[in-house]
Design a protein around this nucleic acid. Structure first.
Length: 609
RNA sequence: GACCCCGUAGCUCAGCUGGAUAGAGCACCUGCCUUCUAAGCAGGCGGUCGUUGGUUCGAAUCCAACCGGGGUCGCCA
């Protein structure tokens, strides 16, 4: 956990303690804070084992001495106890109440920019790179939700963010769809068939594959070897011919290409809109695939690359990697080449850009390692600020997703399913009487998407994850809807109490009064406040590590603690006005924090559910 | 074969800059709605943290080897 404000308050005091008591300076980093375990009294625990050599005393005496020093010198340290080498510190209620009051006064979540310079960083996040020959699937969703959440987290941490996608709109894959549509489509369009554009084009990609396979079978039956047949099937040759025509700017092929891709974009846009994500800029491979060649030749001239067998190579063996071709013998580019050119172009287009994040699956770990090394070798200072946000593959209970075998989970279908499930549950509970149909539909959409997004985001992005369809539509337990539910419940409470702004103002008046009573905080209240207090540090950590999962898990801990509080402690029914106001303010702070955390995950929260 | 990632409860996952008796959710079992939304709360069951060594006052966490799973190593994208 990153240092929170309490810790940054205690560190100088601890350094002073070591200086005065034992005559030694200690580094801030050397002090390990931890949450005090629930079975002991205290809020923060410091482990003194590492300092025994400095103190020259036993663990108990060392901890005792430090504890006494802190109580004397630091206002917020109220008392302490020592268990073995652990110094458990009790922080005064006034500190916690002060924090909550401040949270009500300004925004609890307003953070300073995390860059060392203190300046706003401009960060580009690439978080989608679909091929245009088939619809989006579950794997794309993990990619998209992850990247979108990271962009939100960076914004919340004070950065300027440019969200981009790369559309792989050219190549043999799209020619296959185009060809199959031409041959078998009978002029079918999204309008004539009622099919979503990307679905329609995907259908013809499958049609191509079917035709291709039967041609192979026929050739093999006629005596060809399998390898020969795979290379010589007429429909494949036609597709390759189409690609050549595309590259030669053949007007007919280009017109067809524009039409087919147009359908796909309309389909993608519909899915993105429903998923609640958006982009500031689209890059099209048809425009970027020519980039990079000049840069590679430039590198060749400078001696960064070398020529062998007529091709241009880079040698990364010194970095523990291999040699890699950058320009083929015929002078044409490979994938790496255009990635080099595209990166350079992006930094030219966005002069203030300080960081570029690629949200791409971990099967491309090697590719990005090589790409970053090459750009560094070419002398770009920003090469150190490139980051591959690498995420693990999504598995199904039945195993890997394979488009060939039809085991892919379609993105639109999946969203339909979770929304349907949310509706089923929502209508069963019948809490929504008096709500209009349109409003209900929007709510179920919100809940279903929360279930799906949270399910994909709560897991460490690096890790391969198992997608269990039954678990993903679960609305109970450690889920997005559980968090939404807590939020809605608090909002209901606040509605009963009047506007939350009023509540916070009330707290401002009440906090002073409450602080005079040293034991006024109940343990349930204290637990919740402490979790809220951690939020800025958690957000900071998420922004630094580019990892939404820690934030997702923290949001869950907060609402879980709040639910325990809510169940055990009366709020509106509390007769003491001061206590009631305080508990309402605490509730409001939980709602605000939850909303912000969920915003960072790209998940909306409802006013009632 | 080389390199990279992963291995924690029946299942899915937290915890990993070393620290107290390893935590959640799901599933299963017990309670709690005449009181602020039960999509909830309280409790129970469930673990040789893949294995073996090493470093350390202390290892799920660091190091090494091995076992098991996945990925990548193309003049493909």
């Amino acid at each position: 956990m990153f240092q929170d404000r309490l810790q940054s308050l205690l560190v100088p005091a601890l350094q002073g303690a070591f200086q005065q008591l034992f005559g030694h300076a200690i580094e801030a980093k050397a002090i390990g804070f931890q949450q005090t375990r629930p079975e002991f009294e205290g809020d923060v625990t410091i482990n003194v084992f590492p300092f025994l050599k400095l103190s020259g005393k036993g663990p108990e005496q060392t901890a005792q001495a430090i504890g006494e020093f802190l109580v004397k010198e630091v206002d917020v340290v109220e008392r302490f106890n020592v268990v073995k080498g652990f110094l458990n510190i009790v922080i005064a209620d006034s500190y916690w109440l002060g924090f909550l009051k401040e949270a009500g006064d300004r925004d609890i979540l307003q953070l300073e920019p995390v860059s060392p310079s203190g300046a706003k960083d401009k960060v580009m996040v690439e978080y989608a790179s679909p091929n245009t020959n088939k619809p989006l699937h579950l794997g794309h969703l993990r990619n998209i939700f992850l990247g979108y959440s990271v962009s939100r987290i960076l914004k919340a941490a004070g950065h300027e963010v440019v969200k981009v996608q790369v559309i792989n709109d050219r190549g043999i894959h799209i020619c296959k769809s185009m060809l199959a549509w031409q041959k078998f489509g009978n002029g079918e369009t999204p309008e004539s068939s009622g099919l979503k554009g990307d679905k329609l084009v995907g259908k013809y990609y499958v049609e191509f594959d079917k035709a291709y396979k039967s041609e192979i079978d026929a050739l093999v039956a006629a005596g060809k070897s399998k390898e020969e047949a795979e290379k010589e099937a007429p429909i494949l040759l036609d597709a390759q011919e189409m690609l050549r025509k595309w590259e030669a700017n053949d007007p007919e092929v280009r017109a067809l290409w524009e039409k087919i891709n147009g359908w796909v974009y309309a389909g993608f846009d519909a899915t993105y809109a429903r998923a609640g994500v958006d982009f500031d800029k689209n890059y099209y491979e048809s425009q970027t695939y020519v980039l990079g060649k000049a840069d590679v030749l430039e590198g060749l001239k400078k001696g960064v690359f070398y020529e062998k067998d007529g091709a241009v190579w880079v040698d990364n063996t010194a970095e523990g990697l291999d040699e890699k071709v950058l320009l083929r013998r015929d002078g044409t580019s490979v994938y790496m080449t255009q990635d080099i050119g595209t990166a350079i172009k992006r930094f030219e287009e966005y002069p203030g850009l300080s960081k570029l994040i690629y949200t791409v699956g971990n099967e491309q770990d090697y590719h990005f390692k090589v790409l970053f090394i090459i750009l560094k070798k070419l002398g770009f200072v920003w090469a150190d600020e490139l980051f591959h946000l690498s995420y693990g593959m999504v598995d199904l209970p039945s195993g890997k997703m394979k488009s060939r075998e039809g085991t892919v989970v379609d993105a639109d279908d999946l969203i339909d399913e979770v929304v349907t499930e949310a509706r089923k549950t929502g209508e069963q509970l019948s809490k929504l009487d008096g709500m209009g149909e349109a409003e209900k539909a929007a709510l179920f959409e919100m809940i279903g998407l929360a279930a799906l997004k949270y399910f994909l985001l709560k897991v460490d992005p690096k890790k391969r994850m198992l997608f269990d369809p039954a678990a993903s539509i679960d609305l109970q337990g450690h889920t997005g809807p559980f968090i939404q539910y807590t939020y809605a419940r608090i909002k209901s409470l606040l509605r009963k109490a009047g506007e939350s702004a009023v509540v916070c103002a009330e707290l401002s008046g009440q906090a002073g009064q409450l602080t005079t009573d040293k034991s006024s905080l109940l343990s349930e209240e204290r637990t919740v406040i402490k979790l809220l207090h951690q939020f800025p540090a958690v957000l900071n950590e998420a922004a630094t590590k580019l990892d939404p999962s820690s934030l997702a898990n923290h949001a869950y801990e907060v609402v879980k603690a709040y639910n325990s509080f809510y169940q055990a402690i009366p709020v509106m029914k509390e007769e003491d006005e001061g206590k009631r106001a305080f508990r309402l303010a605490l509730s409001a702070a939980v709602a605000d924090t939850t909303k912000k955390a969920m915003w960072c995950l790209g998940i909306e929260v409802p006013e009632r559910m």
